[in-house]
Design a protein around this nucleic acid. Structure first.
Lengths: 241, 241
DNA sequence: ACACCGTTCAAACAAACGTTTGAAATGAGT
DNA sequence: ACTCATTTCAAACGTTTGTTTGAACGGTGT
């Protein structure tokens, strides 16, 4: 019953931060990330985590204040730098454009590439990719509001540039197309990470030749999303057929 | 440990099917669908379901053989007719095309429209839309293989027509673009159903003017997906920027 | 040698989990 | 009236859940 409504404490052990024993904390974060990705959050018990991490059961409560705190910490550890990368890359693209509207492909690149590329080069495991693919539809309402807060700045920063790059697109339509793009990205990440780790049991008739490198996935996603976002939006007229 | 590997028994109570008492079964399916959509599968206990359905705890085990059986029944009840609608519409489009390749928009219409439109006109609730948005990434491996089986026929039937409508597209690329389309559709359904039921707590800066009718959503999705699937696929060359 | 603080640990907590049981209730067939 | 199969029910089964407890451990500063 501590103040779980605040942002995740990087310093849950009292104010005076101590350097040495970050090891248990880190191990818990890593194994929790992996198990959450494999079995889902509700499908993973703190005992599963602490056993796999060779830690004591109460370690989760000590370091994170409870399971909820651990969950938020798992997401925050990855999403914070990920969103930073996105904003940095967007800022670079804005500078490169020099006053004129940033090309749509560049905006999408700034948004999509960090998910696939920098998460890996940053030494991150594939586990979080699978976890992120699921984070958009998490039923836990506390976690949802937390995630909304984490994504808020990115959304509000990217949206104006999308609007400039897609002149004439109504704001309502933009909202849905960014949602489409989000769905495309996260589901693709999920599929791709499962593909990469060869963990797929029966991948619904997918040829083994479908394997893509991270760079290929990024480009394929950008092309797909760019074309989709530029599509006509004649919502009133009947379909061609 | 009964034979849960078989397809979901429509006749779990011994072979001689009985008509009258479908009421408890149906109520359980309905409330399970709703609660699964709201709290997730692992986040919903059989006690939650039976209490909300005003049934006894053991009713789930009696009618469905256990929680797993109930989960499969919930999905199968909706997905079976949904996929039937898809195949029927595709067949109609094939007939209408008369030998020549079915236009991409028509294929997508056959695939997407039933999700939004016929599920509603069929008297279905919004609950399953939210549930379906999550079903692609369910961690439960038993459920996953079950869902793969349910979708198998649809995938193998649609794929050749996608290939004909997109001449020159490598099969590997088609696999990923259909995955993108799946992700787009299911995430959009999730968002849209949450939007419709006004249950969104804080929808991440979405203007209230973003509300769409089912028909508008279908068209928006078709336009987006069609443009995306037709996008160039120069996976070897550097991006323009 | 002492005290101190951060950390770990085994043990236990009440609550909730899916499932099982055996006895009642129900209604149609003869 | 009786039988029989189907369905409901309250109660209990043994596990597992997240969390708490209080003692022990291991360094560091004095």
């Amino acid at each position: 019953m501590s103040t779980l409504l605040t942002f995740p404490d990087q310093s849950h052990p009292p104010a005076v931060a101590k350097v040495p024993s970050a090891v248990t904390r880190l191990t818990l974060l890593d194994t929790a990330e992996r198990l959450f990705a494999e079995r889902g959050i509700d499908g993973t018990s703190v005992r599963d985590i602490t056993k796999a991490a060779a830690a004591n059961v109460s370690a989760v409560n000590y370091h994170f204040g409870g399971k909820d705190g651990l969950v938020e910490a798992v997401f925050f550890r990855r999403l914070a730098p990920l969103n930073d990368h996105r904003l940095t890359r967007l800022a670079a693209a804005v500078k490169h454009a020099g006053g004129s509207p940033v090309p749509l492909e560049d905006i999408l690149d700034a948004f999509i590439r960090p998910s696939v590329d920098e998460l890996r080069t940053g030494g991150y495991s594939d586990d979080f990719l699978r976890l992120m693919g699921r984070c958009l539809q998490e039923p836990n309402p506390k976690l949802e509001t937390f995630l909304v807060g984490v994504f808020a700045e990115v959304v509000s920063t990217f949206n104006p540039h999308f609007l400039r790059a897609l002149p004439g697109l109504p704001e309502r339509e933009l909202f849905w197309r960014t949602s489409f793009m989000f769905g495309t990205l996260h589901h693709a990440l999920y599929k791709w990470s499962r593909f990469e780790t060869c963990q797929f049991a029966s991948m619904a008739g997918m040829p083994h030749t479908s394997r893509l490198t991270g760079e290929q996935l990024v480009r394929s996603l950008i092309h797909y999303a760019a074309a989709g976002m530029r599509a006509p939006f004649d919502l009133g007229t009947p379909l061609p057929s």
